[in-house]
Design a protein around this nucleic acid. Structure first.
Ligand SMILES: [Zn+2]
Length: 230
DNA sequence: CGTGTTTGACCCGCGC
DNA sequence: GCGCGGGTCAAACACG
């Protein structure tokens, strides 16, 4: 009953034997922060991050996507250096192959949920077998508001929270709640500036923001996105 | 009852 | 090989 060895065939049905939690009903800190008034405006002022100084495929440039000039991101001070040092922003990048990534995604979607741990391990092994580390583009934003969950039009579900080293504030991990969309987002507060948070988006949504603004886009002649709300 | 949050365990890469 | 650090999972709760 121990998943000591990962079975190569699909006949694996090992479950996780972990359930030794004793009591998790401590006291929780109800940090109810939901005050998105003009955060979007502020959020648009801060900066955008294309984490690579070397010329790349510009058609992936998020700044142009959002209509923000690329030079408007200027958090290239110690913060960025620190992040580079920590490996959050990798300087080296291989070619991001989206089609291959999508293919893997489909494959993963097929055999999902049967054995999460096993599937995960299997996927990892598979992608390692391809020797191609699937890295989706990450967009970092530095916001200037004390609320992290500012509503950007998408619905996020928190799936984790970790305390990273050298930081005093925990980092939260969110994920898009759409079934086909697996965009992740991580939010971290700066230690020295608690009023500032760094939101790192990972991946791109495959759907339009499901916010309740169904007012004027009912024409929707263009099924593509083109809805630059973000 | 459905959905989102909390939270400890687990996993995995990497450095030593 | 082992420990550490970071990312993810999922059971258990909270809330409507
Ligand atoms: Zn999405």
């Amino acid at each position: 009953m121990l998943p000591s060895s990962i079975p190569g065939d699909d006949g694996d049905d090992d479950e996780d034997p972990d359930d030794t939690r004793e009591d998790l009903h401590h006291h929780h800190q109800g940090a109810s922060s939901n005050n998105s008034s003009n955060d979007l405006c502020e959020a648009l002022l801060f900066s955008c991050a294309n984490n690579n100084p070397k010329p790349r495929n510009l058609h992936h440039d998020p700044s142009s996507f959002m209509g923000i000039p690329s030079n408007s991101w200027e958090w290239g001070s110690s913060i960025r250096e620190s992040m580079v040092n920590k490996g959050l922003l990798e300087g080296d990048n291989e070619s991001v192959e989206e089609d291959h990534y999508d293919n893997i995604t489909n494959t993963n979607t097929l055999n999902k949920k049967i054995n999460p741990l096993g599937v995960s391990a299997f996927r990892m092994k598979k992608m390692k077998a391809g020797r191609r580390k699937v890295r989706e583009p990450r967009f970092c934003f530095k916001t200037l508001s004390d609320v992290d969950v500012l509503d950007d039009g998408y619905k996020w579900r928190k799936y984790g929270q970790k305390v990273v080293k050298n930081t005093q504030h925990p980092r939260s991990y969110y994920r898009c709640t759409q079934d086909n969309c697996r965009v992740k987002k991580r939010v971290e507060r700066l230690a020295e500036d608690p009023r500032m948070v760094i939101t790192t988006y990972e991946g791109r949504h495959v759907h339009s923001p499901s916010h309740d603004n169904l007012d004027e886009d009912s024409n929707s002649s263009q099924p593509l996105l083109n809805k630059f709300f973000w």
